[in-house]
């Protein structure tokens, strides 16, 4: 298959398939989660569960006091990784243009140089976090093969994107095709791995906040 044909496939049927799997999988995971419902709580509330639930969705972006000192690498690395990934995915001009093409939504992006820097930082944070995971006895015990798969699937679009922007190695067309395929792999794996937390974290935080909020407790 020529690089042009590969690119056309990645842009066309490949992307359509990946997007369909992603949308079906995410919808299924969310629906089967919500389908389990919660039993009605008959206790008389002391505070607003809904309000604290929403507040907790936001407040948990901040690290827990005292724990940063115990796990500085995970906290700082995690923060850099998530912020960097957000910038690279949603604030890079060509990505915004692609999303605009599909949805009509538009917003300002960051200069390519900034995105380049964010990509390097994000990849560096991923490598540091992987090393930290392999060295820490708790994380080593908890880590599964699926975690490594999710890590790899996240790294590949970043790496191929960086090579693509900086015109390193392969011809542009081939690199773009490989980059798109790596994104499609990420989309396909998303609902089946811990990548899914990017959607469900909001539900988890909301539930935790709502449960505590009714009691006037902390979350």
């Amino acid at each position: 298959m020529s690089s042009t044909a590969l690119l056309l496939w990645a842009k066309g049927p490949g992307f359509a398939f990946a997007a369909a799997v992603f949308l079906f999988g995410v919808t299924l995971r969310v629906v089967e989660m919500l389908w389990l419902r919660r039993r009605p709580d008959r206790s008389v509330a002391r505070g607003s569960g809904a309000l604290q639930g929403l507040r907790t969705v936001v407040s948990r972006f901040l690290p827990a006091p005292g724990l940063v000192a115990r796990s500085p690498v995970v906290h700082v690395g995690g923060m850099v990784f998530h912020l960097g990934l957000f910038a690279v995915v949603f604030l890079y001009g060509p990505h915004i243009a692609a999303i605009r093409g599909m949805t009509g939504l538009d917003w300002p992006g960051l200069p390519t140089g900034a995105i380049d820097g964010a990509t390097v930082l994000t990849i560096a944070a991923m490598i540091v976090l992987l090393i930290a995971r392999s060295k820490d006895p708790v994380r080593r015990l908890l880590t599964t093969g699926a975690d490594h798969l999710a890590w790899t699937a996240t790294l590949l679009p970043l790496l191929t994107g960086f090579l693509l922007v900086n015109r390193v190695a392969l011809p542009f067309e081939t690199l773009l095709a490989v980059h798109l395929l790596s994104v499609e792999l990420l989309l396909v794996l998303f609902p089946f791995t811990t990548l899914m937390h990017a959607v469900t974290f909001a539900f988890a935080r909301y539930y935790a906040g709502a449960i505590a909020g009714r009691k006037g407790a902390h979350s």
Partner: peptide, 14 residues
């Protein structure tokens, strides 16, 4: 639903 949301969200960060 909360249990499902909690387990779905764990990234094994420790």
């Amino acid at each position: 639903a909360p249990v499902a949301a909690f387990f779905s969200s764990c990234v094994h960060c420790g």
